[in-house]
């Protein structure tokens, strides 16, 4: 079985049994995260390192809410490299890694969504 990247324990604890809220949050994640990722990639094309760093910064709370703590260090690196304009050569690889993580998270969350009443 594939190792799960998302963990909804934190989201469950703050939802206080509000299933609609939970669905809403997951749906928002499913809709917005690919857009953030696309923005990040466009930053790579235009060499806009600061933009890449800022987007990584904005994604951090979503990772916290979805319990993706073990993959947060990818975001922290992208944020630091982008904002400091350092190790920019590593950004492309990190963003590819991030994309894989997000794709897996999306598929896990889609399944979870089906299971929520």
């Amino acid at each position: 079985m594939k190792h799960r990247l998302t963990d909804l324990t934190y989201l469950n604890s703050i939802s206080e049994d509000d299933q609609e809220f939970k669905k809403d949050i997951i749906n928002t994640f499913l809709q917005n995260t690919p857009l953030y990722l696309a923005d990040m990639k466009s930053g790579l094309d235009t060499l806009d390192w600061k933009k890449i760093g800022d987007i990584a910064h904005s994604l951090k709370p979503s990772f916290t809410l979805m319990g993706m703590t073990e993959k947060k260090d990818i975001l922290l690196k992208i944020e630091a490299y982008g904002r400091n304009r350092s190790h920019t050569g590593k950004l492309s690889g990190l963003i590819r890694e991030l994309e894989t993580v997000i794709q897996q998270a999306i598929s896990e969350l889609r399944e979870d969504l089906d299971g929520i009443a």
Binding site: I14, D24, I25, T28, F29, N32, S58, P61, S62, L65
Partner: peptide, 11 residues
């Protein structure tokens, strides 16, 4: 500005 976090704070 982040829609996800805005929903979280609102909740």
């Amino acid at each position: 500005d982040d829609p996800l976090y805005l929903k979280f704070l609102d909740h």
